[in-house]
Design a protein around this nucleic acid. Structure first.
Lengths: 124, 124
DNA sequence: CAATATACCTTGTATAACAAGATATATTGC
DNA sequence: GCAATATATCTTGTTATACAAGGTATATTG
């Protein structure tokens, strides 16, 4: 009867939506210390947030592609002696500006949300 | 060429994405003190956040419908002596639980983001 | 009676996160 | 020599949702 769709794995659904618009910031941030390749970024993110902000590689690669197209990162293939070739990403100057901008954007949003949610809680 | 798409009104685009998954929480939160009607919620949100988290009514009504279908709010029409009829929304007990859950979900996410973004900034 | 304000609702579009699968190279065990 | 596993990349299709743009209806005001 078209109901109980909003039940079971909602938790994942919400996390997914909350992540929206934050991933570019996350990736740019992870690239700030220096270059890294895709697979590395995935594990870096999992490690640095204790699994709180995990993504799969299928999610990450499109993000990296977007960042490249926008000129925020440059790409370098490293064909190694042994192992599969790696694609290293590095921030451009524009990318660093964008990182600052997104960081500001995110912080403003989070502040506004935090302020709103705190309202009406003061009396308790 | 296919470039300069990532230029102009990006700011709005990002705000839009950041808002994703937060709107249900916002609306449930605004209904916590007591019932309200749709148009009222729009202006409440604008007022309480100084315009930082505005939405249009075209965005809000589908959210309210979703919340109703999920059993988080109940609806009551108020046909007034004068003026257009209003549709008043009120939190259910399940809705209050959901509010608590979403609030927790959001706070966890924001904490994880904040922690990540603060990393690598300490040395500066 | 035209304009404006209030209040509701609907349709179509764009975007992004993800699951699932595909590809390719190297190592390890049998 | 070959199956399994780990590393590393990429693609396709699905789904959810914020929003612009438009539409409806009622009342007030000049």
């Amino acid at each position: 009867m078209a109901t109980d769709q909003t039940s079971g794995d909602d938790r994942r659904g919400i996390e997914r939506e909350l992540k929206r618009g934050s991933l570019e910031l996350i990736v740019l941030h992870l690239l700030a210390p220096g270059e890294a390749y895709g697979y590395e970024i995935v594990s870096k993110l999992t490690a640095e947030t204790n699994g709180a902000l995990e993504v799969t590689d299928g999610t990450l690669y499109p993000v990296l592609y977007r960042l490249e197209r926008a000129g925020f990162v440059t790409v370098r293939w490293e064909t190694q002696e042994r192992g599969v070739p790696r694609k290293y990403y590095r921030l451009t100057d524009t990318g660093r500006d964008e990182l600052a901008r997104l960081r500001y954007e995110w912080t403003s949003f989070a502040k506004a949300m935090g302020k709103l949610l705190r309202q009406g809680k003061e009396a308790e």
